[in-house]
């Protein structure tokens, strides 16, 4: 094929690559600054507004984070909740999406309309809090998982994907004596690996970054997730204002520590991407041309 590649197409390829490289740089440079800052001394951070390499290299910020068990504990909690929560979310989303992909299912349109309705219409933070409370989920890890178990947005996309699966395979399995549940678990799910990978990533990142749920539902600080720790360390913004109000000489966390916490809280979930990336390559197609 390369034989036929014309000169102008080559130029196009090069331009395309350059633009993308520029885009990649623009997105990583601030993150490199955060990483560099996490290894810099406090006076360097105060004196130099922006740099990509610290003049004086120090791991003091990381030593500080690791000096108490707060960071490691909340990291463990977060990993646990994320792994388990993602499994629950995937299971609930996929089991609900599959029947909804069958156009002949009674009540399907009504349910879909009601699902879409919840995307724009919510009871709000406080009524949701009351429901979670009345179910006895306060101070339980379930509170971080169940209230967000199915994203209507993702549900619709997964449902559309199932709609695209060739019906013939499923019919054949049914003829072989499989029930619909058997078809779902033996035929449909194995076919859905790329979609599972994509939504595993979406859900996992959602739980990982969730900050409001632990704030509202978890009072026991030993059960807090990483994001609570990140928030507490990085949002010193309002701190010095309030410093005038309280009497305590509370020193806001150093900037280097803030950066280190961001890096330490981002890297674990970032690592997930390359692992899932190879699954995306197999592709999914969503949305159906109306038949």
């Amino acid at each position: 094929m390369s034989v036929h590649t014309s000169r102008s197409e080559k130029a196009l390829d090069v331009t395309n690559a350059l633009v993308l490289i520029a885009l990649g740089l623009v997105t990583v440079v601030p993150f490199i600054f955060v990483i560099a800052g996490s290894f810099a001394t406090e006076s360097e951070l105060t004196a130099r507004p922006f740099f990509l390499w610290p003049e004086q290299f120090t791991t003091a910020s990381y030593d500080f984070i690791l000096s108490t068990d707060t960071f490691l504990r909340s990291l463990l909690v977060t990993v646990g909740v994320t792994v388990f929560g993602t499994l629950v979310q995937l299971l609930l989303t996929f089991t609900m999406a599959y029947p909804l992909s069958k156009r002949y299912l009674p009540g399907r349109t009504l349910i879909l309309n009601l699902v879409v309705f919840t995307m724009v219409f919510t009871g709000g933070m406080i009524p949701t809090f009351l429901v979670v409370k009345s179910m006895g989920l306060l101070d339980s890890y379930w509170a971080l998982i169940l209230p967000l178990a199915i994203s209507p947005f993702y549900l619709i996309i997964v449902k559309n994907f199932f709609q695209e699966l060739p019906e013939e395979l499923q019919q054949a399995a049914k003829v072989d004596g499989c029930s619909e549940i058997g078809v779902f678990f033996r035929i449909v799910l194995p076919l859905s690996k790329p979609v599972l990978a994509t939504f595993a990533l979406f859900y996992a990142v959602g739980i990982w970054n969730d900050f409001m749920s632990p704030l509202l539902y978890i009072n026991d600080s030993s059960m807090w997730t990483l994001q609570m720790f990140v928030r507490q360390v990085t949002s010193s913004a309002s701190l010095s204002n309030t410093l005038g109000q309280t009497n305590l000489d509370i020193v806001p966390p150093e900037q280097g520590v803030q950066f280190a916490v961001i890096v330490a809280a981002t890297l674990p979930i970032l690592i997930l991407y390359p692992f899932l990336q190879k699954h995306f390559a197999k592709g999914i197609l969503i949305g159906a041309v109306k038949g």
Binding site: T95, K102, L114, G123, P127, T128, I150, L155, E180, I181
Partner: peptide, 30 residues
């Protein structure tokens, strides 16, 4: 038809319960 699709209905149920409990019950808030 319900009997015919009972397995599909069963798959649907957990999700429906989720939407009823966590999405529709709080809607009295409006």
């Amino acid at each position: 038809r319900l009997l015919q699709y009972r397995w599909l209905m069963l798959l649907l149920l957990p999700g429906v319960i989720y939407f009823v409990v966590f999405k529709y019950m709080p809607m009295y808030g409006v």
